[in-house]
């Protein structure tokens, strides 16, 4: 418990430092930082509607974040979330264009299709590693670029919408849209269920235990009888499926069609979320929502105070760096203080 509290305090301190740095930048540019932050949070948390938007926007952040966290904590350096997201989105879109089922069947069908799309893309990288020992952190990155061009091609030629000004597909069939309850989009509900499942697998099953041990010390895990190679493939497929699901839910909740540049906004966000969350599953959920608050509020900030919304991208990067740095620094500081105290106790 004391450990958790300390963790929370360190994270808050890191975020505070990052915001102070942001404020300094704003003062230099002649903006009022207090007004700016007020506009930022007012726009994303000011009323129920805006908070519902925050939840809806947090879905791709949380799911790609979970994908990265599970991967990094288990060993495989899967950096392919952007590509896997795009393939998931494409699979869901194509399914939604050509298949017509009642909603109850259509939505699960498209969600599974999205996961298959993502898992296919991460599975290729996994196979390349297993068969030819090609490092996944390079292959997944290259496959991100390939997925980018491939989906661009798919929406320009085979699945394009006639008479559209720029490359995009037609809308998917209405039975595949995520239902809304008032302002609440059920895509967040799906995310929450997935979060619980992942948490359970990761912390409460033998598989999850094996993954975590392999991530911490693969030699120890191997000597303990863990089948590293099989687990590697499972983790790659699962994390690809998570990123693919993120893509599918973007399509089904948001524009209901594949538009050019769809994944660009989420490119590295999942990896950033997992890093700042130190690959913790619960922390990934919280930071996913927090980053969504920042991104959703960025628009309001720009509308009210004229501070360009791009500042938030800078702020996010600063938060990641400062929080990770202060985590290391404060942990070191605390253990120093503890050691001194122990020494005193002994000498007394």
């Amino acid at each position: 418990m004391a450990h958790n509290l300390r963790n929370i305090l360190i994270n808050l301190a890191g975020i505070l430092i990052a915001f102070l740095l942001g404020a300094v930048v704003m003062i230099f540019q002649g903006y009022n930082p207090l007004e700016t932050y007020e506009a930022l949070f007012g726009y994303s948390l000011g009323n129920t509607y805006s908070f519902m938007t925050v939840l809806k926007n947090s879905v791709p952040l949380i799911l790609t974040g979970l994908s990265a966290s599970v991967a990094f904590a288990s060993g495989p350096v899967n950096l392919g979330q952007p590509g896997q997201l795009l393939m998931g989105a494409l699979f869901a879109t194509v399914g939604g264009l050509y298949v017509d089922l009642p909603s109850v069947l259509m939505i699960p069908f498209l969600l599974v299709l999205a996961m298959v799309g993502g898992a296919l893309w991460s599975g290729i990288a996994g196979l390349l590693k297993r068969l030819f020992n090609m490092d996944e952190y390079i292959t997944t990155l290259m496959m991100n670029m390939i997925a980018d061009f491939f989906t661009y091609w798919a929406i320009t030629y085979p699945f394009f919408e006639k008479n559209a000004n720029h490359p995009q597909t037609p809308r998917i069939i209405k039975n595949g849209w995520m239902p809304e309850i008032g302002d609440f989009n059920t895509n967040f509900l799906v995310t929450l269920i997935v979060f619980i499942i992942i948490w359970f697998i990761f912390y409460r099953t033998t598989n999850g235990y094996e993954w975590r041990i392999s991530g911490k010390n693969s030699l120890f895990a191997r000597l303990g009888g863990v089948e590293i190679e099989k687990n590697y493939m499972h983790v790659m497929l699962l994390t690809g499926a998570l990123a693919g699901l993120a893509g599918g839910l973007i399509i089904m909740a948001g524009p209901h069609r594949f538009i050019k540049g769809l994944g660009a906004n989420y490119a590295w966000d999942g990896i950033m979320v997992s890093m700042v969350a130190n690959n913790g599953i619960v922390a990934t959920l919280i930071y996913g929502i927090f980053f969504s608050i920042l991104q959703t509020g960025a628009l309001g900030m720009e509308l009210i105070t004229q501070v360009p919304s791009e500042l938030i991208t800078v702020l996010q990067a600063v938060i990641v760096l400062v929080v990770v740095a202060s985590r290391g620094y404060f942990t070191l500081l605390l253990s120093k203080i503890m050691t001194k105290r122990k020494l005193k106790e002994r000498s007394a």
Partner: peptide, 19 residues
């Protein structure tokens, strides 16, 4: 972590300054 953070920082910084 530093590398990924800084790559994002560069994207943010350059688009921000561009505007």
């Amino acid at each position: 972590v530093t590398g990924v953070g800084l790559n994002m920082f560069s994207v943010g910084l350059t688009t921000y300054l561009l505007r």
